[in-house]
Simulated scan of single mutants.
Amino acid sequence: MVFTHDTEVSLQSAVFLANSALEPDTLSTVAELDVWFDEHGFTGRHDGDLAELESVRTLRPVLHELLTSDRDRAAELSNRLLEQARALPQLVRHDRFDWHLHAVSTDAPLAARVVVETAMAMVDVVRADEMSRLGVCADETCSGVVLDLSRNRSRRFCSVACGNRGAVAAYRARQASGVQD
C-alpha cells in the first residue's frame, strides 16, 4: 500500500469522478451517483436527488485540476478547498474502517465531503512527494486522470479501453513498419 487506506480510497473516488466527465459521461443519473457512492465506500448523508447529482458533477473540473497539478499548485488548491469548507480534521472510526480522518461532518452535503476528502488525500500526496502517482492518460486522444498505485509505477492509461487502444495502435505501427512480434 502506497498511502493509507482512506487516502487511496479518496484518490480513487476522485479520479473516477474526474474521469466521469469524459465521453461517454458516466455520471449522468442519480442511479449512477448511487452506485458510485456505494462502490467507493461513502457513508453519511446521501440525498440521492438531482440537486446532489449536479453538485457532485460540478466538482469534476476542480478535481481534474487538483489531481493533475504540479506539487506546488496541488498544495495551493488543497489549502484553498480545505479553507473554503472550514475543514476541521478529526480521527473517526465507523463501519468496517479503523481510525482515519474526516474533516467535515457526515451530515455535510456529499459534494462538500468529496472535495474535502480529496483535498485531505492530496495533502498526503504532497507531503510524501508522490505527485508522480498522478498524471494524465498516455492516450493522446484522452485527458483522463491516471492514479498509479502500482509498486513499479507502470500505470500509464486511465482505463482498460485507453490501454487497449494504445496496444492496438502500437501493434499496427509495428506491422506497418515490418517489425514482427
Rank of each mutant, 00 (worst) to 15 (best):
M1Q: 15
H5K: 13
D6H: 07
T7K: 04
E8I: 05
V9I: 15
L11M: 09
Q12A: 15
A14P: 13
V15Q: 02
F16C: 13
A18H: 08
A21W: 01
L22C: 07
D25G: 08
T26V: 09
T29N: 05
E32C: 12
E32R: 08
E32H: 11
L33Q: 00
W36K: 11
W36C: 02
F37T: 00
D38Q: 12
H40T: 04
H40W: 11
T43V: 10
T43A: 15
G44T: 02
G44Y: 05
R45H: 14
H46A: 08
G48A: 01
D49I: 03
D49N: 14
L50F: 14
L50M: 12
A51E: 15
E52S: 07
E52H: 06
L53M: 00
E54G: 11
V56G: 02
P61W: 01
V62G: 08
L63Y: 03
H64F: 03
L67H: 06
S69Q: 03
D70H: 09
D70V: 07
D70I: 01
A74P: 05
S78N: 06
N79P: 08
R80E: 09
L82M: 08
E83A: 13
A85E: 01
L88Y: 09
P89G: 11
L91I: 14
L91H: 13
R93W: 09
R93P: 09
H94N: 14
H94T: 13
D95M: 04
W99E: 13
W99I: 12
L101G: 06
A103I: 12
S105A: 10
S105C: 07
T106P: 14
T106M: 15
D107V: 10
L110C: 08
A112H: 10
A119P: 00
A121I: 01
V123Y: 07
V125Y: 00
V126I: 05
V126N: 06
R127K: 14
E130A: 13
R133N: 07
L134Q: 07
V136A: 09
V136S: 03
C137P: 00
C137G: 04
A138H: 05
D139R: 08
T141W: 02
C142M: 02
C142S: 08
S143R: 12
S143C: 06
V146K: 00
L147K: 03
D148M: 05
S154A: 10
S154D: 12
S154N: 08
R156E: 03
R156D: 01
F157W: 15
F157Q: 03
C158I: 00
C158T: 06
V160E: 14
A161S: 11
A161H: 13
A161D: 15
G163E: 00
N164W: 00
G166Y: 09
G166W: 01
G166R: 00
G166V: 03
Y171A: 10
A173P: 04
R174M: 14
G178D: 06
V179M: 10
D181Y: 11
